[in-house]
Design a protein around this nucleic acid. Sequence first.
DNA 1: TCATAATACGAACGATCGTACTATTTGTTT
DNA 2: AAACAAATAGTACGATCGTTCGTATTATGA
Lengths: 217, 217
Amino acid sequence: MTDQLADAAGTTADPADTDGRVRRGDRTRRLVLGRAVDVASVDGLEGLSIGRLATELSMSKSGLIAHFGSKEQLQLATIRAARAIFATAVVEPALREPPGLGRVRALLDAWLDYSSDRRFPGGCFFARATHEFAARPGPVHDALAAADTEWLALIARTIAEAQAAGEIRADVDADQLAFDLAAYLDSANLRSLLLGSFAVYDQARAALDRRLTESAS
Amino acid sequence: MTDQLADAAGTTADPADTDGRVRRGDRTRRLVLGRAVDVASVDGLEGLSIGRLATELSMSKSGLIAHFGSKEQLQLATIRAARAIFATAVVEPALREPPGLGRVRALLDAWLDYSSDRRFPGGCFFARATHEFAARPGPVHDALAAADTEWLALIARTIAEAQAAGEIRADVDADQLAFDLAAYLDSANLRSLLLGSFAVYDQARAALDRRLTESAS
DNA sequence: TCATAATACGAACGATCGTACTATTTGTTT
DNA sequence: AAACAAATAGTACGATCGTTCGTATTATGA
């Protein structure tokens, strides 16, 4: 929680490890992954080349890739790092709200901020990477598909909480509602980048608001 | 109209040209672009490499790229080719319906078929390419942004026709409704590819139907 | 101080990238 | 048949790709 990229690097969560050598390695891993997520959000996980990353960070290719083993492992670590950032930027703030409609709204608002504030320079990291690997098999695809499934499940679960709290009608299909809401978010993210405008976020907010209002008890 | 890829290749629409040399060139251009859109729908417009394309088509790199001049020009031609395919698969069938709510539904249904039938092996070509270049400047970005803007404008115009026909309420914001509907389509396309399932198209249909029903007069 | 272990570097590898330049083949025209 | 034009092929270039190997640097232990 203190550092989003700690366990994304694959360390065994050993904060009290006083070995300065592995601490140096962890520091480098976090440095690399911090740049990697930004690069990948713009140029994709394939555009994330080792040589480019090494040049930008003023280090050697071999020294960089030694931390990950292969490019595919670097891509998987980058996804884990992006998940950690997403969790702190979107999920955790929402979970600080009490369960109910307020938490649903907090989750969606946090996502819109995460996208429009360009927490990643290329907009939502997952929108970029997921489309890149949607039609390609392999471990990277699977990791992204799992992340997407978890994200939609989180929305649906938050909706179900609001139903349990009596703030969303019981006859609403939580999965369907989650699908609709996520669709608005993704569409706004894409078209804001595409047009260089932020007005589309207002359209997303209007869509979210209407859909939630008509679902409220 | 007879051949979707004819003018996408950049020819000046000279069908009666009896010169067998340029006819051969046009045939090759269409062959190349037909493969290019399929490859790009899976691996993106950057993954579209000249060498790979040449190998798959059993021709030389130099002979292939001579038709386009540069990779960026090939990418732009590929976008034009994809637009032509999209027009015949989605737009033209819908425009054969009389203006009104029926045409709106026909347009959306045609899009869902275009996506779920995998008219491109990687799902919607534009979903893939647009996310790839959303955060990158240049002519390719601009061409994709223009295509997206035209697509949303077409939906909005079709909605406005239905309003003029008295089948959609006059107080409905056509641009907002178009945004919502397009969001459902894109979301279904992505998540169907990601999960390898087609059930998500039913969610999209449910979302489209609800949104249109509540907007109907 | 000296062996040990982890991290980082430098150089080179074969492969592929996009592009340019020069033939060669194929079809047209006179 | 000869001159011409368009399409295609062949070859090579410099750059970058991911990866591997040997070595140097840095920090930790005995």
